[in-house]
Simulated assay, not measured.
Amino acid sequence: MLGIAAASAGFVGTMLPSAPARAIVVFDPSNYSQNLLTAARTLQQVNNQIRSLQNQAQSLINQARNLATINFPEIQAITSTLQQIDLLMGQAQGIQFRVDGLDQQFRQLFPQSFNQALTMNGQVVAARTRLDTEMTAYKQTMGVQAQVVENVQADAQTLGGIVSRSQGAEGALQAQQATNQLLALTAKQQFQIQNLMAAQYRAQTIEQARRAQAEIDARAATTKFLGSGSAYTPQ
């Protein structure tokens, strides 16, 4: 019986399959925390790098804005108006706006001495020449004044355009350029005012010189008419 039981047990053991061995998973909380902390730090470094790249990109954009330029189409109009003023100033007759030859021109027109050999017709012609020179000077002054008034009307539009670009300046360079444009407009206005004053003073000077010359000629003519004062000698 014992033998039969042993044989049966052996037979059953050969008939039943053996159970496979299973691995036991071991969870380490400290190692998991360390890995999680490392991942968080890595993510923070990536975020920092992204922010740095964003800041660099914004810095490049700002630099591009600071280096951006603006056009100044009014500079041609400003130069053209100054050339028109110069053209009018160059039309001065009799006594021109040039240092070379100024003394000679002034002496010819205003000799400040009465030439006794000059005929009455010659005296009239000389006086007429001085009067014509005076009238021409005032006409030239009025031409400069009219041109300045037209320029002021055009400058109002120019100023509006410059101010608009100044307010819309994106960077430091554009703001500086707008400032330079305003300074150019101011300088142009000062130049034309100086020319206007020069033309006005020239006309006034010619008028005063003509009056002074007329007085000199009148005194000389009176002296010539009266003679030495001893034309009649009593006997």
Rank of each mutant, 00 (worst) to 15 (best):
S230G: 05
Q93D: 03
G171L: 00
A9Y: 04
Y32S: 15
N31F: 11
I216M: 05
I95P: 04
E207Y: 03
G122H: 03
F97Q: 00
A218E: 10
Q34E: 07
A178C: 07
T119N: 00
R130W: 01
N47R: 15
A39L: 08
E215P: 02
V124D: 05
L36N: 06
G3F: 07
R210F: 01
Q45C: 02
T158N: 10
G3I: 07
N35F: 10
I75M: 08
E207M: 05
Q208V: 05
T141H: 08
S52N: 06
L60E: 11
T129Q: 15
Q167K: 12
Q45S: 13
I61D: 04
F225K: 06
I50G: 07
Q56I: 10
Q194L: 11
M142D: 12
I193E: 02
Q116K: 14
A127H: 05
A203N: 06
G3L: 12
L88R: 07
M142T: 07
S59N: 12
Q192W: 04
E150H: 04
V99W: 14
L102N: 04
N31S: 13
Q204G: 06
Q157S: 06
I193L: 13
T233G: 02
Q157L: 09
D103N: 14
A21W: 02
D155T: 14
A214I: 00
G94C: 01
G227K: 02
A156L: 11
L131S: 08
N115P: 09
G160F: 12
V125W: 09
I78K: 01
I61P: 00
M1L: 08
P111Q: 03
F11Q: 14
S80A: 15
T222Y: 11
F191C: 01
R165D: 03
Q91C: 04
T223R: 10
A231M: 04
Q105T: 02
R210C: 01
V124G: 03
A40S: 12
S30T: 12
R41L: 13
Q96F: 04
T79R: 13
S166F: 14
T222V: 13
S228I: 09
K188C: 15
T205I: 08
E207S: 08
T186V: 06
I50W: 05
Q140R: 13
I78L: 14
A5N: 14
V26F: 04
L159I: 05
S164E: 11
I61T: 10
G143W: 03
V99T: 15
P73M: 00
F114C: 04
I50N: 14
T42H: 05
Q192F: 02
L53Y: 06
V26I: 07
Q194K: 09
L67H: 04
D28Y: 03
G13F: 11
L60T: 05
I70E: 13
T158M: 08
L102D: 02
P29R: 13
G229C: 03
G143P: 03
I50E: 08
T42R: 08
L37D: 13
A127D: 07
G13W: 09
Q58S: 08
A77V: 11
V46M: 09
L60D: 11
L183I: 06
Q63K: 09
A156S: 09
Q177D: 00
Q200I: 03
M197A: 12
L36M: 10
Q167N: 14
Q56D: 15
G101Y: 00
N151H: 06
A5T: 09
P73S: 01
I216Q: 09
P17D: 12
D132E: 12
T79M: 12
S164W: 06
P234E: 12
N62D: 15
